[in-house]
Nucleic acid binder design. Structure first.
Lengths: 221, 221
DNA sequence: CGTAGCATTGATGTGGGTCAACGTATGTGG
DNA sequence: CCACATACGTTGACCCACATCAATGCTACG
């Protein structure tokens, strides 16, 4: 994977020697905010939700899918986690002790450079997610999600919802009830839902409503 | 400053040779989102607001005060800015060409290490700001701001608002109207406002309402 | 002084959360 | 294989936080 591409062999071995790969069923809390960051997690398979709580409320901060990492920033600063993580699907996670990551970084500037890139990308994705949340309405976020899923899955006018709707709702920062209502709003723009399948009558009409913005939606920049 | 402490002398010289220090009056847009990241900005004096726009709306993402930096992540990835920045006070800003920062990083692992720390801290502060916004109500955010300002300014029961109220409102993620209302809400917890001065009758009552949370409020962790 | 911008207050609108009821699907045990 | 249980999904009613709009008051500076 990208993170280890420029890693020296001995450093890589040292990391892997201390690492372990573990399977988790769905709905498991992998880390909890306020705990010290003792492991770097790399998600190999599945889907993980990052969230935070305060005063009985909870908010979704983002999602990690293969081969993303968390929580790199806490590991690097040797601090507590600011976020919690739970699996949304059966997942496989590679865990590397934080201490090893820090010493590998000190020993191998190629690895450190990769870490910097990964960290910067995570940072930028968080900023994009924040903009998505604060500058768009619920139905707009859904419209953009559909367009992205369609691009990702192929060019058909059918889009499969590959997770439970309640999970999609959380991912889009809304309640399940409001997700239903958001789908109803999008009916006017040629969207129909049948179970786990979405039909897109007119990509153009949907795109006009969604107001695609590369500074929010592009996951490579 | 911390960012250059472990920097090799020749690398530091190379950075400073290409850098320039500039003064800006209040209300100047220093960078604009979607532009390529050509300069790393280090704020030496003053106050800068980071914000983003989309579809006619605008949202505050955070604030930078001395000796913070922006936009490190964009500079490191050689990408466009995702945020815009404007001065909220007269400010002095040190600007270093992005290319120099990247080559200095490649040449000097001490500097790279400092960059990693700065980037991770910025990342974590953004996450805290996001939690502050999404998990607290407006009056709660104000209460926490008052408590922090009080700690910062001294132990008196008077707290000075050192910026225009409209600026404070933006910083707290609300409109000026709602800031007024938030102050009214806090009357019940012993807060009175007189122009630019806040009086805190009982720190304890305010703190109980504010629900201080180190995972949101501490700026060092 | 007078005026322009800032601050406050009130009225109103809206997005989205919450609660409750009902419908629908899925899987399990008799 | 059916019946029921359990969870998920949808819909409607309602509420709350906050934005918006409009009017007025305040203050500061030329």
């Amino acid at each position: 994977m990208r993170l280890f591409r420029d890693c020296r062999d001995d450093v890589f071995d040292s990391l892997m020697q201390a690492a372990f790969l573990q399977r988790f069923p769905r709905g498991v809390e992998l880390i909890r905010e306020s705990e010290p960051a003792d492991m770097l997690h790399i998600i190999v398979e599945g889907l993980v939700q990052m969230f935070a709580s305060h005063g009985g409320r909870e908010t979704t901060i983002g999602f990690v899918r293969p081969l993303g990492t968390f929580i790199l920033a806490a590991v690097l600063r040797d601090q507590v986690y600011l976020q919690s993580a739970r699996t949304l699907e059966r997942s496989r996670v590679l865990m590397i002790p934080a201490e090893r990551v820090r010493s590998a970084m000190a020993a191998d500037s190629g690895f450190m450079s990769a870490i910097v890139g990964e960290l910067a990308m995570g940072y930028r994705n968080t900023v994009k997610e924040l903009k998505n949340q604060k500058l768009r309405s619920g139905p707009e976020r859904l419209a953009n999600w559909i367009l992205r899923a369609q691009r990702f899955q192929g060019k058909s006018d059918r889009v499969a919802i590959e997770m439970e709707k309640r999970v999609l709702a959380a991912r889009l920062g809304m309640t399940p009830e409001n997700l239903s209502r958001a789908f109803n709003v999008l009916k006017a723009y040629g969207i129909t839902v049948q179970g786990a399948e979405i039909r897109v009558d007119s990509r153009d009409r949907l795109a006009a409503y969604a107001k695609i913005n590369p500074l929010i939606d592009d996951f490579t920049t």
